[in-house]
Design a protein around this nucleic acid. Structure first.
Lengths: 199, 199, 199, 199
DNA sequence: AGGTAACCGAGACGGTACGTCAAGTCTTCGT
DNA sequence: ACGAAGACTTGACGTACCGTCTCGGTTACCT
C-alpha cells in the first residue's frame, strides 16, 4: 500500500491530487473485493481512502463512473493470435474466465453491469465499453476472415458478441469455473455449426 | 386495478390474505415499470400497495424474493415448434425480445439480474431459474436432435445456453430492438458454423 | 410455573379460561422482572404466556390495566400498630422499602407510575389507587389522633400523603436502600418539626 | 417561531449547527406539550423540526437525553428568601406548582421521570439532577439554620427531599391545582411537627 | 509578492430506505 | 357463542448512505 506514507493527504494546490485519485481508486477496488457490490458505497470508499466524500464526487459524478474507471484501470485480457480462430477463441475465453476468476475484475465488472441496470450513465458507459470490446475482440475474427479461414461475409462483430455473451452469462450466474471442454464445445458449435452437414 | 374496491384491506383471520399478496405483487411490478430498479424499494412497494412493510417481509424475505415472484408470475414466452430448429430458435428469440420489450418483464428480469449481483439468495434463485429455463429451451434442440436435424452428440443445454446468453447480453445493454436479420444471422452461425466448409 | 402442564392451552368453551388469565398475569410479572418496563410489551407477555394478543386485550383493555392488576395481585404491606405513631410510620416505611426492594412490586409500581404519565386510564387508576392507599395509611395517623398522641386538627390524609411522597420519590430515583436512620429522621421531622421550639 | 425564516436548513460545515439544535429542542418541547409523552417520538420531533432523524441521534443518544436537555433549558423556579423558612418553603412550592402548571415544564418533567423508569441513562441523569436540586433547595433550609430558626442538627438535604417529594407526588398524580392552604399545612407539619407538644 | 482560486480532509445537514418490533384490530377455527 | 391464534395495517425504532454544503487549511497560479 502506498498511502501509509501520508496518513493525512493535503491539497497540492488548485489541481487534482493524483495521490488522492489513486488512493480512491485503490480503495474502491478493495471495498468491492472485500465487501462486494452490496457493500460498495461512496462512504465506504471515502473511509477506506481517508478521503472526503466531496473529493470523490468532484471527480466521479456517480458510483457508476467510479466503477467504470476502476474497471478500465485493470489489465486487459490478451487477445491470442495462434493462426487458427478456434484456438484463438478458446484461448480468449479461457484467459477471460481465469482473469475474472483470479483478479478482482470479475467482481468489478459484475458490479458495473448491475449498476448499469439502475443508472443511465453507467448504462451508456457499459454499452460504449461493450461496443469497443466487441470490435477489439472482433479483430480475431477479422484476421481469420483475412486468412480465408471463415466465410468472407461473416459479421465479425456479431461473432464477437456471441462469444462475449457466453462469457457474460457465465460471469453473472457464477459459472466461471466452466471446464475447458465446455468452452471448446461452445466455440466449436460457432465454428462448425450444429446442423448435420448433408441436410 | 382491483384494490380500489377496498382502500383499507384488513386481516381475513390467521392466514395469508391473497388480496394483500396480489396487491403487493402488482405494486412491485408497477413500481419497477414506473421508477425502474433504482426506485424499487420495499417502502415504495408498500406505499403503492397500501400494505405494511412487515406484511411484505413476512412473505418475501428479501427484495430478491419479491422480484423473483414478480418475474415468475408473468406469462412465459412460447417455445415454437415449426419442425425446423433454425426457425424455432429465431422465433424464440424474436418472441423473447418482443416480450421483454413490450411488457414489464424485461425491466423485471434486468432488475433480478442486478439484484443477484449483490444478494446471494437472488444469485442462487437466478442460477436455479436459468438452469430450469435452459432445459426448457433445450427441448427445442432435443426435438431437432430426435429428428436427426442436428448431430446426435450435440449438447442441447449448451446450445440453449448460447442462445440465452445472446438474449441476456442484449437485454443488459439495451439492445432489444435488434432487427430480425441480425438474430437470424446469429442463429445461422450456430446452426451452420462460420468456418469455410472445405477447410 | 403452572403453564408447563399444558403447553398448548385450548379454549374451554364460551367462558374465560382462568388458566389463561393466571398464566398471563404471571407472565406479565415475569417479563417485568426480567426485562423491566422497557421490555414490557403485550407481545412479550403473550409470547411468554403462550397466549394470543387478543386474549389479553379482551380482558385488559390496556397495558395499564394489566399492570394494575399485576400490582394489586401482590401482597400488601402491613400497616403496623405499635401504639406509638412514630414507630408505626418508621416501621411502615421500612416494610414498604423492603417489600419494594425484595419482591417484584417495586418494579411493577414504578412501571405503573411511568405508564400513568402517558395513559389516561392508568393515570386515573393510579390516582384512585393512591387515594385508597392514602386513607388506608392514614388510619395509623387517625389511631394516633384518637389516642391523643397528635393534635386533634391534624389532617391524617395529608400526613399519609407526605409519608407516601417520601417513599415514591425514593422508589423513582433508585434510593430504596436508604438506611433506617434517615427514615427515622424524616419521620421525626414530621412528628416533632424542625423549628426551634422557643421561637 | 424562528425556523420559518429558513425552511431548508443546511450544514454550516463540519460542526454542529446551532439553528438545528435549537429547532430540535423547540420542536421536542412543542411535541411534548401538544401530544404528551405518549406522542413524543424521535420521528415526530424530527418532522416538527424539519430535521433528519440522524441529526437528532447524532447529538442526543436517546430520547432521555433529549428530554433532559429540554427540561434543563427551561427557566428554573426561584428560591425565595423572605427571612422566614416557612414562608420560603410555601412560596417555593407555590411557585413550583404554578411553574409546572402554567408552562410546559410540568409535562416535560413528568415525561423525564417516566422515561427514567425504563432507561438507565435517564435514570442516572434524573438521580443526578435530583441531587443537584436537593442541595439547591436545601440552601433555604441552611439559611434558616444559620439564622438559628431551626435546630442546628437538622439535615437540610433531607428536608429539601421531603418538600420535593411532596411536589413530585402531586405532579405525578395530577394534583398540581392544590390550594395554598394545603401546601401551607404540609409545610407547617414539617416546621412544627404534628405531635402534641407536651407528650 | 500577494491575493485568489481551487483543491484537500472532515463532518454536519435534510433525506430516504433499511429491516425489526410492537400496537391494536380483524377473522376464522375449534371447543 | 366465545376463546385462541395468527395475519393485518400502522407507525416508530435506530442505522446506513445518499448527495450537498461549509469549514479551515494548503498550494500553485496570476496579477
Amino acid at each position: 500500500m502506498a498511502e501509509d506514507a501520508d496518513p493525512a493527504r493535503k491539497s497540492i494546490g488548485a489541481r487534482r491530487n493524483p495521490a488522492s485519485a489513486d488512493a480512491i481508486l485503490e480503495a474502491a477496488e478493495a471495498v468491492l473485493v472485500e465487501a462486494g457490490y452490496a457493500g460498495f458505497s461512496i462512504e465506504a470508499v471515502a473511509r477506506r481512502a481517508r478521503a472526503g466524500k466531496p473529493t470523490i464526487y468532484r471527480w466521479w459524478p456517480s458510483k457508476a463512473a467510479l466503477l467504470l474507471e476502476v474497471y478500465q484501470r485493470q489489465k486487459r485480457v490478451d487477445v491470442p493470435d495462434t493462426g487458427r480462430l478456434e484456438e484463438d477463441l478458446v484461448g480468449f475465453l479461457n484467459n477471460l474466465f481465469a482473469h475474472w476468476r483470479e483478479t478482482s475484475s470479475g467482481s468489478v465488472f459484475r458490479s458495473l453491469i448491475a449498476e448499469a441496470q439502475s443508472d443511465d450513465a453507467a448504462s451508456a458507459a457499459l454499452a460504449d465499453y461493450a461496443l469497443g470490446r466487441r470490435s477489439h475482440t472482433g479483430q480475431m475474427v477479422e484476421r481469420a476472415r483475412a486468412r480465408g479461414e471463415i466465410g468472407a461475409d461473416i459479421d465479425a462483430a456479431l461473432v464477437a458478441d456471441l462469444i462475449a455473451s457466453f462469457a457474460w452469462k457465465h460471469l453473472l450466474t457464477n459459472r466461471l469455473d466452466e471446464d475447458e471442454a465446455t468452452i471448446r464445445k461452445a466455440v466449436h458449435y460457432v465454428m462448425r455449426g450444429i446442423a448435420v452437414p448433408g441436410r
